[in-house]
Amino acid sequence: MNILVCIKQVPDTKIIKVNPKTNTLDRSSAPAILNPYDAHAVEEAVRLREIHGGKVIVLSMGPPQARNAIRKCVEIGADEGYLISDRRFAGADTLATSYALFKAIEKLQHEQGIDLVLCGKHAIDGDTGQVGPGIARRMEIPPLTNVIKVEEVDLEGGKLKVRRKIENGYELIQSSLPCLLTVEKEINEVAYSPLPNMLRAARYEPTVWTVDDLDDVDIKQLGLKGSPTIVGKMWPPEKSSGAEMIEGEAKEQVEKLLAITLEKRELFGVKGGEK
């Protein structure tokens, strides 16, 4: 079973800082990392390969530095990595991104056959989760989003069963193969990579494709030109009138706060959310 995993290199948003005066991003402070959800997708692919054979192919779109994110996937256990990198891809929104990735998947599909596509639930620099379902639509295969467990893969029957996270629970859903899964972090723990994988990853050179390496590409659908959405403006969040400050020594502050909140003391009687 050949599994394709779409991954993205993202700035580590835990570390990224915004200059409050100019409102610009201090990107230098944010190291580039493999999107954490994608690491789980690669891990899941590696586990499925161990059971069902085949190989794990990683695909990403991004600048040349994104090769490092692909190497990270090789550490986790991916067999091959492809990077589509071209100025003409730049500025893509989710629609243009899914198109570009789809064109590369088509080529890989044609060359080696793809049975399953995996993506992370979303990328932490955008939080949209739109690219995965977009790719599935373009490939005309079913998308199964927010997967927390792959229950069963029936290669001969050409179908699989997964648990999909929904509000307050999950649903068990069956799909024909090929299909596309987007995975939640709960799906697995990313294993500590063995040393041979580390050595292989350090040497690994992903295949880099430009637009010209892909077939029948409609340039109008790529990058900024192919993106229906644009960022209109950015602004710092509005400052409201602000809080009424409770001043004084700690003891005084506690007394004043108690006086305010105990007016609603009935709220503290019955536990609202927990049952």
Binding site: G169, Y170, E171, L172, Q174, S175, L267, F268
Partner: peptide, 24 residues
């Protein structure tokens, strides 16, 4: 159709339900 929902499991006794809490 290529997909089929086999079962929906709602976790009734979920440990946390922030969305319905009166005090957080």
């Amino acid at each position: 159709l290529r997909t089929k929902v086999l079962e929906i499991v709602r976790d009734a006794k979920k440990a946390v339900n922030l969305e319905e809490a009166d005090v957080i």
